[in-house]
């Protein structure tokens, strides 16, 4: 059963997205198929060049780059949200698939989860 974990909160302002990532990593640890879907302001997780030193946090951009190593199958992003927040081929991190119809994507997963 493939799990889709949805992140709709921008990075750094709350811990919710990181806890979504922990959920994805633990499913992957047990070889359970899992993908991440970024919607709304959550797509800002996927922007290159994050420098969170000044707010004393670790870079979610760097954390996220470990996802494929751990076995997270796909990083999906809502295309309209990417457009809205100015994410293009030039500033999107590697390995992200933009999807046009998130509703259709959502239908394909038996287990759709928000971390909070």
């Amino acid at each position: 059963m493939h799990t889709l974990i949805v992140i709709d909160q921008p990075p750094y302002g709350s811990w919710g997205g990181r806890e979504s990532l922990d959920m994805a990593f633990s499913l992957a640890a047990f070889d359970q198929p899992v993908s991440l879907l970024f919607i709304d302001a959550g797509v800002l997780w996927l922007k290159q060049g994050q420098e969170p030193d000044g707010i004393y946090q670790k870079s979610v951009e760097r954390n996220l780059a470990a996802a494929s190593i751990f076995g997270v199958e796909a990083l999906l992003a809502e295309a309209t949200a990417c457009h809205r927040f100015g994410l293009t081929d030039n500033n999107l991190i590697n390995g992200v698939t933009r999807i046009e119809n998130t509703g259709t994507t959502l239908q394909q997963y038996q287990h759709v989860v928000f971390s909070g």
Partner: peptide
């Protein structure tokens, strides 16, 4: 305990007679 407990419930819920229900803020 660790998230492993949640993973276990998730795996079980692939059976028709099992459900994981989330209560968010």
């Amino acid at each position: 305990a660790g998230l492993g407990e949640w993973v276990e419930s998730t795996i079980k819920s692939s059976v028709q007679s099992s459900r994981v229900i989330y209560f968010h803020g």
